[in-house]
């Protein structure tokens, strides 16, 4: 058992639990940041160094910044946060999610082909070169489509988030 994985997963799970239970979104975002980093460490322990790096860049660099930016933009006061569900509602949902976890665990543990060490087949496994070759040879078309998706999402975010021109004129 990889001790790095143990520590990382413990940190990730703890921060994840904290994230979903924090009332203030700023705290949640901070716990999510910790969780992302721990997941990046897990990637390293799974012999995926390139992914670990990309994960840090994309999630902590881009997505987290976006979240924090929006949180600051909204600048919610504590009384604006609104009510949360009472415990009578949250408990059944927790049970449901636990049941889902139990189901998945049972499926995972009952499959003997998964009870093998997580060992990379070669030293270059998951390196930039290997993943890059795969990405631009075999998966070139999905790659291009994903870039298209990102462009569309960018425009969509712009259109959604900007104030209406008439509103701007009316207020200015």
């Amino acid at each position: 058992m990889d001790p790095i994985f143990l520590i990382a997963s413990a940190v990730a799970l703890a921060s994840a639990v904290n994230m979903v239970t924090q009332r203030n979104p700023v705290y949640s975002a901070v716990f999510l940041l910790v969780g992302f980093l721990a997941v990046a460490v897990t990637f390293l322990s799974l012999s995926a160094p390139f992914l670990a790096a990309i994960h840090v860049v994309v999630y902590t660099g881009a997505i987290m910044v976006l979240f924090l930016f929006v949180i600051m933009l909204l600048n919610l006061k504590p009384e604006e946060l609104g009510a949360e569900y009472p415990i009578e509602t949250r408990a059944p949902i927790a049970v449901l999610c636990a049941a889902m976890f139990g189901m998945m665990s049972w499926a995972i543990l009952s499959d003997p082909s998964l009870a093998i060490p997580a060992k990379a087949p070669n030293a270059t496994w998951g390196s930039v070169e290997e993943v890059g070759l795969l990405l631009f040879n075999v998966y070139a078309l999905p790659f291009e489509l994903i870039s298209l998706l990102i462009i569309v999402a960018m425009f969509g975010a712009l259109v959604l988030a900007k104030k209406r021109l008439s509103n701007v004129e009316a207020t200015s």
């Binding site: 058992m1 994985f5 997963s9 990730a12 799970l13 994840a16 639990v17 994230m19 979903v20 969780g35 997941v39 897990t42 799974l46 949902i93 927790a94 999610c97 636990a98 889902m100 976890f101 998945m104 665990s105 995972i108 543990l109 499959d111 998964l114 009870a115 093998i116 060490p117 997580a118």
Partner: peptide, 19 residues
């Protein structure tokens, strides 16, 4: 063991779903 990683993933997924 790969299954531990999968259990970890399942736990993350379930916690996220709860959120």
């Amino acid at each position: 063991m790969i299954s531990y990683y999968l259990l970890f993933a399942a736990a993350l997924f379930s916690i996220g779903a709860y959120g």
